[in-house]
Nucleic acid binder design. Structure first.
Lengths: 112, 112
DNA sequence: GTTCATAAGTAGCGGACCTACATATAGCGT
DNA sequence: ACGCTATATGTAGGTCCGCTACTTATGAAC
């Protein structure tokens, strides 16, 4: 999958991954790898800044903890983030509908 | 629809719009508006440079014509462009499958 | 003759993602 | 003791691509 395709959808992925559970950044990356069958292998330089953006936006909050001597910053959704996730899901549905319509119906098989 | 969502998918839209017919830039913009029910209103500053990129990449060729005193640059797909369109459609399918999997299956309703 | 629709284009900006690097601890093997 | 790997977080800088805003030109309408 070409990397640029994610543009504008990363927030949705992160919010969805945090829906219903709290995870730290490293675990989010692994969760996305597993959920996608290895197709999504996001570098830390992508995820960590994105999480800070989401925190600045009020969509997530973070707490530090120490597990086995290693520091973890655990994120969870805020109510605002829940709403944002809902909006992202709707936007994603609308987006795919529009693109599907063009990719599928823009060519010679278009019904008048 | 947030504008950045298109990132990485614009080429697919343009190629699909040109699949099976030749159109000039202005007509492509109008065609996309109609196919999307108005959701896609691409500015000329997005479309014209993108078409030139596609031409440089060998995916489309262009011919000038004059209709009613106005100059038109009409684009059509090359065989390379046809293949690229095919690849873009596959990439789109894979992309949506992956994101759908995360957005739909990443939360609390995930079945083990 | 001014305004709108048609038609094509450029310059420059912004931002989101990536690459590459830096830092630190725990555990394993040798 | 030493190095390597996995775990864990983070920053600096670059790139690319779509967007905003603007320019140019013709024909038709008013």
């Amino acid at each position: 999958m070409k990397p640029d395709a994610l543009r504008g959808h990363l927030d949705a992925l992160l919010l969805a991954t945090l829906d219903g559970k709290q995870l730290h950044g490293y675990a989010i990356i692994e969760a996305l790898q597993q959920h996608s069958g290895g197709a999504l292998d996001l570098p830390t330089g992508t995820v960590y800044p994105a999480l800070r953006r989401l925190e600045r936006a009020g969509h997530v909050t973070s707490d530090w903890s120490t597990v086995g001597g290693r520091k973890r910053r655990t994120y969870k959704l805020t109510p605002t983030g829940q709403k944002a996730l809902h909006a992202e899901r709707n936007a994603w549905r609308e987006f795919t509908t529009v693109i599907d319509g063009v990719l599928g119906g823009g060519g010679k098989w278009a019904q008048t």
